[in-house]
Design a binder for these strands. Structure first.
Length: 442
RNA sequence: GUGGAUGUAGCUCAGUUGGUUAGAGCGCUGGAUUGUGGUUCCAGAGGGCGUGGGUUCAAAUCCCAUCUUCCACCCCA
């Protein structure tokens, strides 16, 4: 928990610094607002919430019979759609879009918000994938300026720098991929194309070629794509080669946008590598412009942060022509990476500088007085809650690596002193309150 | 959704081709040290072997079902 909070705090501080507003939305949404936003796979991965009440009465047998007669592939699926109208959110972006539309009259645009909340996906959990996980989203909505993309890159860079992780920030533009689909004269294969390209790292060139053909892309087209997959050189060199290969209006626009972002980013001194990668795809349907993905350079792990621009996410909720761009940090994955690489700072647990041994009621009263004074001087301190055996109290202090142990027993009360023991050296001496304060703040 | 593993003490795991009283390390408790931890030594507590069936004279062990967690594919943070 402490570690998780550390990640959240780091992200939150970064967003605050760039003037993003905090926002939370309910865990549940109407299924109608969730469905159809995440591609066909996405709908399958939604957790549905069963309606309340006796929802099967008079309905179940008819639905089942109806589907049976139709020879439906999945009767359960049909039934499912009739008995659940709410679902758990799948990400934070779509509920955010819904929120923006609903409150459009109260918000000042461009609207920037960050949101740190759990999301749920009904797939099989495994390494780096959970049924429930936290996302930390930041979005800017109501502006199509590419400065926002740049700002998000800065935030990503800042967060990972502060967490002490070495990452690569990859960017691409959906318009380039779209241009590519037009370039091979199969614009309808846009989604198939991007999904295949995305697998290059995993399956290799041959695998991707096969994948593309399986998805109905003609062999000539596959050959035509090959040079795009092996662009070399610096970001600007890659952009230059792309420009020479592609003439479509749409693709050209994507190239221009990427170029503009990279030019802006040049002014910034980023700590991490910003790489333009025309192979970057991303499965979410709603992205239309720039897309981001962040990967650690230090171990094998899926992306730990991703995002992109969506030109018309609010359109489906009845608010047209509002462009937004956002990113999402995958807290759980970042946690896993930090844990594996042991990157969490050592002293994160709030731990006292001094612990007082509890000798009983009378002695504890005296200790409380001292504690009060220490705390007023901002010295983190505590008293063991029970008058347990000394040995137990000492090992508690030891296990929590508390630097000093203070003892106020009968003798000390009589003499008006405090016995303080240095837990590292084992040294022990008697001091008064002022000396104790000096010792502990030094 | 497809395929493969896993489940034994608080934790990490042993447990042979079914065979008496199910083990270890760490942790915990007590003692050596009644107001002194971290080191050492001694002793002790703690287990319906995931759940429900079945086979057998006998099941942690074999069979079936179910749940959990994990891994690969798909996809994703």
């Amino acid at each position: 928990m402490v570690k998780r909070k550390y990640i959240f705090d780091t992200i939150e501080e970064a967003f605050c610094k760039y003037a993003y507003q905090p926002l939370e939305t309910p865990s549940m949404e109407n299924l109608s607002t969730l469905m159809g936003k995440y591609g066909e796979e996405g709908d399958q991965l939604l957790f549905r919430i069963l309606d309340s009440g006796d929802f099967l009465r008079g309905k179940a047998s008819e639905i089942v019979k109806d589907q049976w007669n139709k020879g439906s592939a999945s009767i359960s699926a049909a039934l499912r759609n009739q008995i659940a109208e709410k679902g758990l959110r799948y990400d934070l972006t779509v509920p955010f879009a819904r929120f923006v539309v609903q409150h459009r009259n109260e918000l000042t645009f461009p609207f920037k918000r960050y949101q740190i909340q759990p999301v749920w996906r009904a797939d099989k959990p495994q390494k780096g994938r959970y049924r429930e996980f936290y996302q930390c989203d930041g979005d800017v909505i109501g502006t199509d300026s590419l400065l926002n993309e740049v700002e998000l890159i800065q935030i990503i860079d800042e967060v990972f720098t502060r967490l002490g992780l070495d990452v690569t920030i990859k960017i691409n533009n959906r318009k380039i991929l779209k241009g590519l689909a037009e370039h091979i004269e199969q614009p309808d294969k846009f989604m198939d194309l991007t999904m295949s390209i995305d697998k290059l790292d995993k399956m290799g060139h041959e695998g991707v070629k096969q994948e593309m053909q399986q998805r109905g892309i003609t062999p000539e087209a596959v050959e035509k794509i090959t040079p795009f997959l092996f662009l070399e050189g610096s970001n600007s060199e890659k952009l230059e080669s792309l420009r020479r290969m592609m003439f479509q209006e749409e693709g050209g626009k994507g190239i221009e946008e990427s170029q503009e972002i990279l030019e802006y980013a040049d002014v910034l001194k980023l700590n991490n590598v910003l790489e333009f990668d025309p192979k970057l795809a991303r499965g979410l349907d709603y992205y239309t412009g720039t897309i981001f993905e962040v990967q650690t350079n230090e171990m094998e792990m899926g992306s730990i942060c991703g995002g992109g621009r969506y030109d018309d996410l609010t359109g489906v909720f009845g608010l047209k022509d509002v462009s937004g761009v956002g990113i999402s940090f995958g807290a759980e994955r970042i946690f896993d990476v930090m844990e594996r690489l042991a990157r969490f700072p050592k002293r994160m647990q709030p731990s006292a500088r001094i612990m007082f041994v509890n000798f009983g009621r009378k002695e504890a009263r005296k200790a409380l007085e001292v504690l009060q004074a220490l705390r007023q001087a901002s010295i983190e301190s505590e008293i063991y809650p029970d008058a347990a055996k000394m040995k137990k109290q000492m090992s508690y202090a030891n296990n929590k690596s508390i630097a000093y142990v203070g003892m106020i027993g009968e003798d000390e009360i009589d003499k008006g002193v405090i016995t303080v023991k240095n837990m590292e050296t084992g040294e022990q001496k008697q001091v008064d309150l002022e000396e104790l304060k000096a010792l502990l703040s030094g």
